[in-house]
Write a protein that binds this DNA or RNA. Structure first.
Lengths: 95, 95
DNA sequence: TTATATGATAACATATTTGTTATCGTTAGT
DNA sequence: ACTAACGATAACAAATATGTTATCATATAA
């Protein structure tokens, strides 16, 4: 009986997470990762970003630790002071 | 006393909508517009897209008529069968 | 050691989205 | 006239995100 040990093993366990679900999770990891990276590169704390964006610090912390899935509303407000926005792009636009 | 008549006049009325708010609304209009365009170009009805995406038809209708602001969750699920996804881009990436 | 700032989180209230089921008015086709 | 499919919407329940306030553990600096 195989033990699931690493995070990537967990993510690839068909029994646990469907392909569509995994795709969605990977998407969110990448999305949130870029957001955190942008904030840190600007040298902003969560509290400073909260003041700039109007989104409260606990909400930002919950986003960044992926405790919640933001509304595009909230994501936009947080990304905006970081100099980023959201866009719809074709899937085959390989990164 | 100036009467606000057109939609763009309404959107540009400083008294009614703050610049940040207007920016957010324009962003959502563009985002949702692209989503509707993609669905119609694929020749899909809301009910068909509901079946493909797992998001119910009333929810899709509410999104497209901008009665609600979707979670990135929901937006992703709807865009995926249309061949699109969401990406974070720098604001100065002029379209 | 003390002070300060950080991200994370608890607890609860509030706001909002989404699901569910059903139906409406309209349009297109027969 | 009838049917079928469409998008929109009503009404309500359920799920989830966000606000609010406070605190925690940790790291850093004085």
């Amino acid at each position: 009986m195989k033990q699931v040990k690493t995070f990537s093993e967990y993510m690839n366990d068909e029994e646990r997470v469907s392909p569509a679900e995994r795709e969605k999770i990977n998407f969110e990891i990448e999305l949130i990762g870029k957001m955190v990276e942008a904030r840190e590169q600007k040298g902003l704390s969560q509290r400073e970003l909260a003041r700039l964006s109007g989104v409260k610090q606990p909400a930002i912390a919950r986003l960044e630790s992926m405790k919640t899935t933001p509304q595009i509303d909230t994501l936009f407000k947080v990304l905006n002071p970081l100099g980023y926005t959201i866009s719809i792009v074709p899937i085959n636009a390989k990164k």
